[in-house]
Nucleic acid binder design. Structure first.
Lengths: 158, 158
DNA sequence: AAAATAATGCTATGCAATATAACAGTCAAT
DNA sequence: ATTGACTGTTATATTGCATAGCATTATTTT
């Protein structure tokens, strides 16, 4: 029942309790926090954070998409995309165009500069991922991606 | 270059852009957010959220630990643990005891009630994890845990 | 055709998690 | 004996995400 020696506390680095280390949710949170921190650091060179990057990539890949649909895809609140779009637009990365058939909708189209920047961001984020995943084989990375997708239910094709 | 049909936007559920689906960080964030949301919901029955639970589990498993060391283990700020401990203490889940050798340090010990509650929380969170991971075999769960641990560097023993 | 329902983009506001800065008291090291 | 480091703490900032509501426009139901 005693177990731990109680020694000097400031020795740093002790392990997480077993009960937590057994929980996948715990590892998910730690890994995700670590990733988000470093991903944002990597993207600083492009002057964005992960969310604006995701929005721009979505516009680039689905030209003519509406902001509401981006929100559905990225599961974010319509209210929260507003400042993100405002900034991307101010930087000239996409344009809004009125939908001819539905006056509520603005369709978003990437500019040439937007496509360039999206490519640059992809380069930065890919380098970051490579660093993060250096300890895993390609097959393992695929497995990991697949399992994570199953958890939040985007195909995971299993 | 055209690709997507542009159709009605409100059809819901479209897939994330390929560029994002290739990123493990993207899946990490989505999976972690999903987990955190449901874990907190599951823990509502015990009147805690994930962080206070983690703190209590740590005290329970390492009796006599100091708050500073909990912060080092869970990688949280010393400032932020204060209200967490205040609440757990108010609920009678642990006790503070002065360290005989170092007047700066308070050593934290779980009460009987604290151990009970910790057990109860573990039950709730385990049920939640079981639901979350229903689509994965036990071997896959072990693999997932191992890979996540490698990412943020808590053994992962690989 | 009228009325009810719902979607869009948006403002304003809230909350929870995490981060930063500073402090007094205590201990360790030179 | 001074310097530097660590503890627990207060106060405050920042960030990400959530909620509520609004005017406008479309769709659906009656």
């Amino acid at each position: 029942m005693s177990g731990e020696p109680l020694k000097k506390a400031q020795e740093s680095a002790a392990e997480s309790p077993r009960a937590l280390r057994d929980l996948i949710g715990y590892h998910l949170k730690r890994a995700s926090a670590w990733d988000l921190h470093n991903a944002n650091a990597a993207l600083e060179a492009a002057g964005v954070r992960t969310v604006p990057m995701s929005v721009l990539l979505t516009i680039t890949e689905k030209p003519g998409i509406s902001s509401a649909e981006i929100c559905r895809i990225l599961r974010m609140q319509r209210a929260n995309i507003v400042p993100v779009l405002a900034e991307l637009e101010a930087r000239g990365l996409f344009l809004r165009e009125a939908d001819p058939d539905d006056n509520r909708i603005q369709r978003l189209f990437p500019t040439a500069k937007g496509r360039e920047e999206a490519q640059r961001m992809l380069g930065l984020i890919s380098a970051h991922e490579e660093r993060m995943l250096a300890g895993l084989t390609m097959a393992e990375r695929d497995e990991l991606r697949r399992m994570l997708a199953i958890i939040w239910r985007e195909d995971g094709e299993g």
